[in-house]
Design a binder for these strands. Structure first.
Lengths: 363, 363
DNA sequence: ATGAAAGCGCTAACAA
DNA sequence: TTGTTAGCGCTTTCAT
């Protein structure tokens, strides 16, 4: 007991002396300093800071603590508190910094994170291999991961990381077909239907559906959904479906298409629904070269796009706007549920969002 | 001595027992576990991990440690190590997530951070007040801050935060006139000169310089530099300077300008140099409405812009490309110097970068 | 070369 | 209610 006491006293005394002596030079203010100044113990300081439930602090003490904090310009050390609580209050956002949509997702993540008090760790270097990345996350004791994936490139190793590390994970636009992974997905069927409805109101005839695709991509779920929606819609409205597939890079095909439809006026303005945001600038460019005015000579619309990315286009493209900002927010909420409710089966693993019609001048 | 010993043994024994017993359920692997498995002490593990200078570890022990790390899937706890070393290896990136240029800066920051082993904490909520933000940074014991500022909005409170917190700080495009702050700035004079040179080679006459500005902005240093560069260039080439100031929102002024210059053909294609990226889409739009073809009827160029932001424009805009990605990288390097060399006066506080000519189709 | 031990700043369980 | 204490996982002297 004496020995024990001796150790503690020695410990603290030394500490206090050091503090007192070098406080000015090495300005690391701790909760201890605050406690000392406020004339309370460190636990009280901690209680005040965290509103620890079940522990009351008298009004005067509380104010004394707050006062001391202000005077000493004290800030909790998130690392130290994290070590105790096991939470880092930090989530990782992964995505390709080359992709402008990533910024919108970040905006959403950020907004929601502020709400929960999370901070965002950014790490989207696509060159970095996934195990390096996992190591990084594990080192920082990240509370969760959000990644912006691509519908057609589902990276298996991500799932593996999640399995191994046990870190809660939410994918945006990825893992649509892996039921265990939580993901935020766009309802592309609805997108196409609404686009067709819009165009149908404008012109009497149904649009040609143009599928842009990369050379040797196989059709992904999103593309399948869109195509089926188009065919179904045509069937329901007793129209002949007209589908065209164009490989990215095949300028000639675009030119042919444009020339063909711009002359073929069987009632109303010829119109085109494009499947994929990447195809739009290609269409615009060819139309520009051919001196066709989009929005006058041809109507054009995109079923997978964002308003923000096309605002400088002339004429402004009519789009089904994918709400990336909101998807970012949703991801954080989903992550939060995953973290708190442990294994509650209440949450569905797939969260669907709908694109919103943003009429422009092109249709 | 006995008491002391008793305490330590008790401490460690309990620890070991707990570990052994609950290792599966509470899977927090520590350096202690690694040490035990490799048959060494924790210090050796640490030495292996950090290549601690001046401390050699025999080859076999080192391999044993590495092996154990792999087997146990061990990852250092960055928080714990940070507490000892005083470094968090984390830098904060601040910027407006609404600004697409921010993404390019992030790309650069990221690239350079990978190199140094820093991680990025993102926090760009522009609504959040600056003292909240400072608190956040201080809590996380951030090693440095990079912020993407705007040339015409120098936020005084930022500087205050830096003073108060002592956290190394680098501004991108901000604080040009505050010599104490380290900032990365664009040489806008050079930008204008090179743009004029380029256009002069294309058409015989000097371009009109159009200054787009917000209603009640006062002229900032960048705008002053650009205007002066234009005037100087004209003088040196014995040309009559022609400057136009247009307030954002004044569509009529743009229309007048376009109509005026498109008819006024005194030799060569009439051409325009725009001061600011925001003005470009406005010019394009009016030209589109007037059915003037940029790149044929009028030449147009921008002295403050990015290639990436204009790639979908028709025709592609010729720009002086501001290298935001590189500026992000530079910011990290500058931060690093600030952190390592303490107060070395060797580093100039203002780092200048040059815009690069990216010819498009508009001039 | 290696290991013991101190202590970074905090929170939570417990004691008073 | 308030104060004491153990301990989070690590690095880093300091003895050996």
């Amino acid at each position: 007991m004496t020995a024990k006491h001796y150790i503690y006293i020695g410990y603290n005394t030394c500490y206090i002396l050091c503090r007192g002596a070098f406080n000015l030079s090495m300005k690391r203010v701790t909760s201890f300093d605050v406690a000392k100044r406020a004339g309370v113990s460190r636990s009280v300081v901690s209680a005040v800071l965290n509103d620890t439930p079940g522990i009351g602090v008298s009004q005067e003490k509380r104010e004394a603590v707050l006062e001391a904090i202000r005077e000493l310009n004290y800030h909790v050390d998130a690392r130290a508190s994290g070590m105790k609580t096991g939470k880092s209050f930090c989530i990782a956002a992964f995505g390709n910094t080359r992709n402008p949509l990533f910024l919108q997702v970040l905006e959403g993540i950020q907004r929601a994170c502020t709400e929960y008090g999370y901070h965002i760790l950014l790490s989207g270097d696509p060159n970095m291999d996934i195990s390096k990345l996992a190591d990084l996350y594990l080192q920082r004791r990240i509370d969760g991961i959000i990644s912006l994936d691509s519908v057609n490139a589902v990276d298996e190793s991500w799932a593996q990381v999640q399995k191994d590390s046990g870190i809660p994970f939410v994918s945006i636009e990825g893992f649509a077909e892996e039921s265990e992974v939580v993901s935020i997905l766009v309802n592309y069927k609805q997108s196409v239907v609404q686009a067709l409805t819009h165009m149908n109101e404008r012109v009497g005839i149904q649009p040609i559906y143009v599928i842009f695709r990369n050379e040797d991509d196989i059709e992904n779920w999103a593309e399948r959904d869109r195509r089926e929606a188009y065919l179904t819609w045509c069937e329901q409205h007793a129209r002949n479906p007209r589908v065209r597939v164009i490989t990215i890079g095949d300028e000639h095909a675009i030119m042919e298409l444009l020339q063909e439809i711009s002359t073929d006026k069987h009632g109303g303005v010829p119109s085109v629904l494009v499947n994929w945001s990447v195809g739009v600038p290609l269409m615009y460019r060819k139309a520009y070269e051919l001196r066709l005015r989009i929005g006058e000579d041809i109507f054009l619309m995109s079923a997978d796009n964002t308003k923000r990315n096309n605002q400088a286009m002339l004429p402004i493209l009519s789009v089904m706007d994918i709400p990336y900002v909101r998807m970012g927010e949703m991801a954080v909420h989903a992550l939060n549920e995953q973290m708190n409710q442990a294994k509650a089966p209440s949450i569905a693993n797939k969260l669907w969002v709908e694109a919103e019609l943003q009429p422009g001048e092109s249709s």
